[in-house]
């Protein structure tokens, strides 16, 4: 099913149409800020051309969402399963409280990606950011895996302030040669070579499949693996301001 959208299209009408469609594959053209696309959807392949609105794929429960353009805020909020692939950048709070499924962003993401991310048994969410991430990456992360590949070329650092504040589970992989400043002391950072880590290899190969990048080249580099440091648990998390 193909749906043509313009600035007059109301998000409710659009989402009702998507839900009502019997087709597995749905193609949206000309999307311009319509919210909640693919929210709670289980078994569809939705392709979006344009700029999808906030909360794209929130509570997504399966299926695939492909975006050709930039995603706005709260992409994959609390998603449970399925895959979101963004050929562009994703705004703030990407993968907020994610509990399953996978998000691949070819470019950068804004503030608070992967905050409150969690995992349970075989539900192990994954976020891959091709470029760089804003502040508060993985704040309060409790599970799952965040990978930042640092393929951006605007001279900005791969992560910003307060990365992993309050992190107490899960893992982050940052592809860079030296450890970014201001990683909290409650986090353990270990330098590894990408190609030596099976789990990371699989994730990076998936990323490269979507975005036509060279996995061998991306993996032949050093990564810092961030995990909670159980030797130094939280006493007081924030400074006095």
């Amino acid at each position: 099913m193909v749906i043509e959208i313009d600035e007059k299209t109301d998000f409710r009408t659009l989402n009702e149409k998507i839900r009502a469609s019997g087709d597995k594959a749905v193609l949206l053209n000309g999307c311009i800020g319509q919210r909640y696309i693919a929210t709670g959807v289980s078994e569809k392949d939705i392709t979006v051309h344009g700029t999808p609105g906030n909360a794209l794929g929130a509570y997504l429960n399966g299926g695939n969402v492909y975006v050709y353009g930039n995603a706005q805020d709260a992409t994959g909020d609390t998603m449970n399963g399925g895959t979101i692939v963004v050929h562009g950048n994703a705004g703030d709070a990407t993968g907020y409280a994610m509990r399953g499924g996978k998000i691949y962003v070819s470019g950068n993401t804004g503030y608070r990606a992967g905050i409150h991310m969690k995992a349970y048994m075989d539900l192990k969410p994954v976020i891959v950011i091709g470029g760089r991430a804003g502040s508060f990456l993985g704040e309060y992360q409790a599970g799952g895996i965040i990978v930042v590949l640092g393929r951006h070329n605007d001279g900005q650092p791969i992560i910003n302030n307060f990365c992993g504040t309050g992190m107490h589970g899960g893992k982050m992989y940052l592809r860079c040669d030296s450890l970014p400043k201001s990683i909290p002391t409650q986090i353990r950072a270990e330098k590894v070579c990408g190609k030596d880590v099976k789990e990371l290899k699989d994730i990076v190969c998936d990323y490269c499949r979507y975005f036509d990048a060279d996995a061998a080249e991306l993996l032949d580099a050093s990564f810092f693996v961030l995990t909670p440091n159980t030797d130094n648990p939280y006493k007081r998390m924030y400074t006095n301001n």
């Binding site: 600035e7 311009i32 800020g33 344009g50 700029t51 930039n70 706005q72």
Partner: peptide, 8 residues
């Protein structure tokens, strides 16, 4: 506030 407000 949102990218759509520019792209439109």
């Amino acid at each position: 506030s949102e990218e759509c407000g520019i792209r439109v």
